[in-house]
Amino acid sequence: NIFRILGDLSHLASIVILLRTVQKTQRVDGISLKTQILYVLVFCTRYLDLLTFRWKSVYNTLMKMVFIGASVRVIQLIQGCKIQNPVAYKDMIFRDTLQIKYLVGPCAVLALIFNYKFTLLELCWSFSLWLESVAILPQLFMLSRSGKASTLTTHYIFALGLYRALYIPNWIWRYYSEDRLEKLSVFTGLLQTALYSDFFYIYYKKVVKGAGFELP
């Protein structure tokens, strides 16, 4: 359905925006390396089913590969800035202070409690959903601490948040048309969108209505 495709496309757009801008400008200011590392972890644990070769469709398989590849490439590019632009890189690391273990630990526990089957694949899948819902936190934390963000960062976060928001009508659609209700995805998806809601409001006020982007 349309919401799902638009959601996937905005997800792809967010990564492309990030990739292209970092590649072109060699700048990493405002981008959280920790959030990006968490996304690599999210994609690698969620798309483990690629290894079972029970592929759903060409689209599904290709997108999974693209997402894993692009998220790894982002890390490579950020690491490249370490040499190209060491001052900005150090500044980013210095401000990227939210500790990953406080996110990964609880997500692992939640995956052990909430899962469809106690198998490695299903546990990893559940873990990836929980982790994805909070993976943006180091980035948002960094934003709220600095109070300012480049337009790259804001467009990136907006496209990323839009993707999860679009998945909500997709689930409603699928509930009525396919009688499908995937509780774990829906719950973590709602959680993730909720974390973005504050950001969306500020984005709307500042970027859509003009001028710069500043957090209170």
Partner: peptide, 10 residues
């Protein structure tokens, strides 16, 4: 319990 729903979303 396993709901039998395939993980077909990204």
């Amino acid at each position: 319990a396993h709901t039998g729903i395939e993980h077909d979303e990204l």
